[in-house]
Amino acid sequence: MKTYENTGNKDTRSGFGAGLTELGKTNENVVALCADLIGSLKMDDFKANHPERFYQVGIAEANMIGIAAGLTIGGKIPFTGTFANFSTGRVYDQIRQSVAYSSKNVKICASHAGITLGEDGATHQILEDIGLMKMLPGMTVINTCDFNQTKAATLAIAEHEGPVYLRFGRPKVANFTPENQKFEIGKAVQLTEGTDVTIVATGHLVWEALEASKILNEQGISAEVINIHTIKPLDESVILGSIAKTGCVVTAEEHNYLGGLGESVSRTLVKNNPVPQEFVATNDTFGESGTPAQLMDKYGLNSKAIVEASKKVISRK
């Protein structure tokens, strides 16, 4: 079984910051906007190096999205930065009309997504953003799993013409994907090969899925782990190819089961090859205060939950 080494815990938001810093040097059309969260989004370097291309808009997210849409007219590639909740739910109509419907080349970069935002609690922990964004026609939705992948995704979306939602998080998590990897939007990454169950995971749950696959392997269960960094467009062929072999799937995400990755996978299965599926996701609930690890445990979003879901789904075959 292929194994992956954690080269040291890092936050995915710092991967975004590193990517943005590099874009500042390599792409003069990239501009960045932030709504009073420069430090949290790790946009300090870009701001310091390119003050003329950096827009501090203050605590005014709706205005930020509109300005970003306007900046595209004239050929700029705007990257907006704020928490996931304020990047989506707060400004849904601005994104819908001024960005998505208007086909503007805006990159909505959202940190502190999901429950691992931690102690700030449910007001700041959005678990609905993937659903909100994937429903918008023309919107690409990406949720990266570690520092290296987030950096690579940040570079890749600058080359992609069209609106993108890039989702990442606050806590320091395992960094295990290759440094300087090539990031292909819409292309799933198969991490391990297996025959008994397919685990399709996104974001922070990808490492948990790898941990789960090790535990399952020790118990004689062979799991195939797929890293779905792009939720829309979904790489259906890789998922269908895997479940043709395993006959069942567990989806894992730091998001409500309603509207998330799991539902996108379900749709793919129903239309092509219905097999049993279990969901590792939050169960139509808000989050609460706590440490990220405590919350992932309480809301069933860790390797333990993936192991249990895998056994359950195999029993349903």
Partner: peptide, 16 residues
């Protein structure tokens, strides 16, 4: 929404 968009376009003009 239009004033925000107009401001963005105005700032793009300055950059250009």
């Amino acid at each position: 929404q239009g004033m925000s968009v107009a401001i963005g376009a105005a700032q793009a003009k300055k950059l250009n």
